[in-house]
Design a protein around this nucleic acid. Structure first.
Length: 538
DNA sequence: AGCCTTTGACCAGCG
DNA sequence: TCGCTGGTCAAAGGC
């Protein structure tokens, strides 16, 4: 990985007024998001339930849809696709429409030449037609109810990215054709994801977001999230089913149900944001204490307990043979805050990237929603869910289009100070969790940590600095990655690589929580990747 | 050494 | 009471 200096240099470069891409994106996003009714997309989930009294929450994630991935031929058409997609995927389009469109798969290419003056940047991400950028942005993580999709590959998605960012990743399933490419050739395709039902409120809130970006953003975000939240069942269990996403994403998905999702919950019910996270990666530490083949299920059910002392939370996870999570059920509420990312055992820690400082779990969410359940339920978690986890939340649910559209600028501070009401402890906690967005190095000093990071719009958004999680790996070596910058830009990407490279990357990602840098190095072809822009805080 | 996973056995609820 | 089923325990082993 490039040293910090290098990184910085890159960042600076990035900061150079070469906004074209960004501008495009912004305008694009603005248009897209501002105009479109989110509610339609997300559906109503606005129901907020107090989670406190809930003992069990069931989040159902339907991931059946997988992203429709175009073949790798179009791998580099990311930006263009996005744009094209936009057109098609106006926010107005119904899901069905989008899906239908998707079936058509015509990938448009965008002429990026004007986007980025610098070299021939090929956009790594390809978005299938019919898919709106919004969808992309709304990665599974955003699924309302915690629909998170875990990574089929590992079964566990680190949702948090520990140190560096908190990026959580959700996974997205999808099928991709096998195409083996040179190791060097990586293409990213964005994966589509379903939208969570619950984002309606978000939509409404978006406008507001745009208007207020500043400090209040975080708060707004919170409120939005809260409102959006979710959908928790009255039931006490949270069931997460991946199928939704899958279905949305791809029809072809071979796997049965699919992929799992993760749910993060907010106590507030933000499920939405909830991102769909891999169950294992909800940020909490879990210990498997049993596995059983249940009668009416094709998949074995695994039983997990939260490893925190005295924490009664348990979860049941069903995975397909492929390792995809088909259902996640959380029971109980956490009696403790999310563990700091760096403390998290294996899974979490493994995700940590060298560069990362403290990640947030957000992405951790995984469990969703954090478990939504857990969050929802656990009083203590509230905060975390909403705030500290902040990141998670932000990413997942809260990320409104606004953020994205508006250059996605986040301040770490903002992230931290999501709410004035947050106690210092909570703040600390969040910080620990990595709620603070985009901090690159653990070592970073405050000054640095206080800097703002500017994220480029999704299309232009350079994956590099972002932490990506491996969602799934195809036999061919293709990787599905989920990226959730704190900004909430959640995106799924497909990396097309030769089998050998794919394995290599996969390992890297799984064991270390690959950073974009790592990917970049591995895939020189992905010249498009750029680090996010970091700007000094005012 | 500690933590986690695996896995067969055990327990409890229900019809 | 019995059998089925889901959930949990706990020993063994791995990392």
């Amino acid at each position: 990985m490039a040293g910090t200096d290098n990184r910085r240099a890159l960042m600076e470069d990035w900061m150079l007024p070469s906004p074209s891409p960004r501008t495009l994106m912004s305008s694009f996003l603005n248009e897209e998001f501002s105009s479109g009714p989110f509610s339609s997309i997300f559906g109503d989930n606005s129901s907020n339930k107090p989670q406190d009294g809930i003992e069990k929450t069931k989040t159902l994630v339907d991931l059946s849809v997988e992203e429709t991935v175009q073949d790798t031929k179009a791998p580099l058409q990311l930006e263009s696709n996005l744009f094209s997609t936009n057109q098609k995927s106006t926010s107005h389009g119904s899901l069905a429409e989008r899906m239908a469109a998707r079936a058509g798969f015509g990938v448009l290419k965008i002429d990026t030449s004007h986007v980025s003056s610098s070299a021939p940047i090929r956009s790594p991400v390809t978005i299938p037609p019919g898919v709106s950028p919004r969808e992309l942005l709304e990665s599974p993580v955003f699924l309302p109810n915690a629909i998170a999709q875990p990574s089929p590959t590992t079964g566990k998605l680190p949702f948090l990215m520990p140190n560096n960012f908190k990026s959580m990743i959700s996974s997205v399933p999808k099928k991709v054709e096998d195409q083996s490419h040179d190791d060097c050739a990586f293409s990213f395709q964005t994966i589509l994801r379903s939208k969570p039902p619950s984002f309606s409120t978000v939509d409404k809130g978006l406008g507001a977001f745009h208007q207020n970006q500043s400090l209040n953003d975080s708060q707004q975000e919170l409120s939005l999230q809260v409102s959006t939240t979710a959908t928790k069942d009255e039931t006490e269990e949270n069931l997460v089913k991946p199928s939704t996403c899958d279905s949305m994403l791809d029809n072809d998905h071979p796997s049965p149900a699919d992929e799992q999702v993760e749910s993060e919950e907010n106590q507030n019910g933000e499920d939405a944001s909830v991102s769909v996270i891999a169950p294992d990666e909800d940020g909490y530490n879990w210990r498997k204490y049993g596995q059983k083949q249940v009668k009416n299920s094709e998949h074995p059910r695994s039983y997990y307990k939260c490893t925190h002392p005295n924490c009664p939370v348990k979860k049941k996870v069903e995975r397909s043979q492929e390792g995809h999570i088909t259902e996640i059920v959380y029971k109980g509420s956490h009696s403790h805050p999310l563990p700091p990312p760096n403390r998290r055992p294996s899974v979490l820690s493994s995700h940590v990237i060298d560069l990362q400082a403290d990640g947030s779990e957000n992405f951790r969410s995984k469990p969703g929603h954090n478990t939504e359940t857990s969050r929802e339920m656990a009083p203590n978690d509230h905060f975390q869910d909403v705030h500290s986890v902040g990141l998670e939340r932000n990413l997942s649910g809260s990320l409104t289009t606004t953020e994205i559209a508006d250059t996605c600028v986040m301040e770490s501070q903002e992230a931290v100070d999501v709410s004035p009401t947050v106690s210092s402890n909570e703040k600390d906690d969040r910080a620990t969790h990595g709620t603070i967005p985009l901090t690159y190095g653990r070592d970073e000093d405050e000054t640095e940590s206080k800097r703002r990071w500017r994220f480029l719009p999704l299309l232009t958004l350079p994956p590099m600095p972002l932490t990506w999680q491996l969602w799934h790996q195809e036999l061919s070596g293709n990787l599905r990655l989920l990226c959730r910058p704190q900004v909430r830009l959640t995106s799924l990407m497909m990396v097309t690589a030769g089998a050998s490279m794919g394995r290599k990357l996969s390992k890297e990602i799984q064991t270390r929580g690959a950073t974009i840098n790592a990917l970049t190095q591995a895939a020189p072809c992905a010249s498009m990747w750029r680090e996010p822009q970091m700007i000094s805080s005012p």
